[in-house]
């Protein structure tokens, strides 16, 4: 506790982290180099693109691991304790509210994803919000209702597609003769200048991240809530 007072003040422009040349470069040059006003997203999706790509892969792997551990096929468990929270048919009040809220949550998730390079947000956050809307559907009705919209197969496809979209942007720049994930060269196949191409590609990889995160969020929930049987859950 005594060391806390030695920390630099919050937002101190002269603290070591802020006065280092690299951060100065990010703060002053991001807008010129990538035409993205949100420098956090620029660092995350462009300067450190590799890192974020493998973070997406980590989420994908986590989802696959959960499925590998929990998923059980066939209807073997007659003795397994059934969750009894909502035994009756869906409640009118809860049903109506969720009907109103789920579309708004999804719309807001799309806004967070699409606005990630202008304001706080991005693929991870938006994906989590989108996944939460499906979880809300599963909680307010039952797991089957949500499964109708996102069956297990579609979830796994979406998760894979998300990673592939991200890697595809990397491979695209590789094919056009630049380094992996060096988006500027993509201006040849986009109606944009090299600098704007970076901004557009960042939006593209955010969408890829959002696909994976949405799918894996709901997959983890449905596996945990239904004890791996994917039939009945909370």
């Amino acid at each position: 506790m005594s060391a806390v007072s030695d920390f630099p003040d919050w937002g101190d422009p002269n603290s070591p982290a802020n006065s280092y040349r690299l951060s100065q470069h990010y703060v002053t040059e991001t807008i010129h180099e990538t035409s993205v006003p949100n420098m956090v997203t620029a660092v995350l999706a462009d300067y450190r693109g590799y890192d974020t790509m493998f973070e997406t892969v980590v989420i994908f792997t986590a989802g696959i691991a959960i499925i590998g551990i929990l998923r059980r096929f066939g209807n073997d468990d007659k003795d397994a304790a059934k969750p009894t929270l909502y035994t009756k048919k869906p409640d009118l009040i809860i049903d109506t509210t969720c009907r109103l809220m789920i579309p708004i949550i999804q719309l807001f998730a799309l806004y967070v994803i699409a606005h990630g390079h202008h304001s706080p947000g991005g693929g991870f956050q938006g994906g989590v919000i989108f996944g939460a809307s499906f979880i809300l559907l599963a909680v307010s009705r039952d797991l089957q209702a949500a499964q109708k919209w996102v069956p297990e197969k579609r979830i796994l496809n979406l998760a894979g597609i998300g990673v592939l979209i991200y890697a595809g942007f990397g491979l695209g720049s590789l094919l056009l003769g630049q380094n992996f994930l060096d988006y500027a060269i993509l201006h040849k196949i986009m109606p944009a200048t090299p600098i704007e191409a970076r901004s557009h590609s960042m939006l593209g990889v955010e969408i890829g991240v959002a696909f994976t995160v949405t799918a894996i969020m709901f997959s983890i929930y449905s596996n945990l809530a239904s004890n791996g049987s994917m039939k009945e859950g909370l």
């Binding site: 009894t84 929270l85 909502y86 035994t87 009756k88 409640d91 009040i93 809860i94 509210t97 969720c98 109103l100 809220m101």
Partner: peptide, 17 residues
Amino acid sequence: WASPTSTHALIRAGLEE
């Protein structure tokens, strides 16, 4: 919207439980 509904859901769950 959300807060009264969640209260309602919790109370209902308590009643059923």
